[in-house]
Write a protein that binds this DNA or RNA. Sequence first.
DNA 1: ATCACGAGCAACCTCGCGGTTGCATTTCAC
DNA 2: GTGAAATGCAACCGCGAGGTTGCTCGTGAT
Lengths: 113, 113
Amino acid sequence: MATKRSAAANLADAAPVFAALGDPTRLRIVAQLSSQGPQSIVRLTETTDVSRQAITKHLYVLEEARLARSVRNGRESIWELQPERLADVQRYLDDISSQWDGALERLRALVEK
Amino acid sequence: MATKRSAAANLADAAPVFAALGDPTRLRIVAQLSSQGPQSIVRLTETTDVSRQAITKHLYVLEEARLARSVRNGRESIWELQPERLADVQRYLDDISSQWDGALERLRALVEK
DNA sequence: ATCACGAGCAACCTCGCGGTTGCATTTCAC
DNA sequence: GTGAAATGCAACCGCGAGGTTGCTCGTGAT
């Protein structure tokens, strides 16, 4: 059973994650968190041209999509990636791809008939 | 050379693809094209609650992101997935993930020092 | 020849997203 | 304890995304 894997995000669930990754600034944040590890908001702001507030909002969006999470540390809050979520997305894309292969196969069979 | 693979979408390039997949209606279209193979606009419209025009617009967005492509066939236009693009996205996510692992490793080494 | 079907074109509307600025609050450093 | 640093909170704004409706146009069927 479970051709739909439990962890694999089902359609309605996956869209928000893609949407979260769909903004350039946000994708930049993800890339930076990924390459440099967890870091504070100011640090994330330094490498960009938008305001700190904008970055903060983006971080909340990423949190909503469960792509990132924050930990308070004194007066600064440290944000880090939640990479399990990326794995979910990959699994979803895998499903799509394999379905596509199947569909083409069926289509060809249908045409030849 | 080329630690960044040529086909792997670089940051600025990847965001639009994610954005294209980030809308529920659009993701539904992709899923349907993936599971049922190429099909016409009306057919894609039948399974949804929005207008044909809306679907058409979404299809153009997918085309812009090179996730789908259309072929005219008589009076109907048939749309199909362009799965290579999905592979690009997967590769991009792979990069992010591996970078993340590396970053954590470095971080741990730094703390222990 | 006529009619219906599938699609394209264009104008329009609404609302949420990405961004800003200004101020308050907490915490560290000295 | 005082000042500066890091963040949170709130109000505001422009614009483009997602949607609709109405009409036209080409093509296939009869």
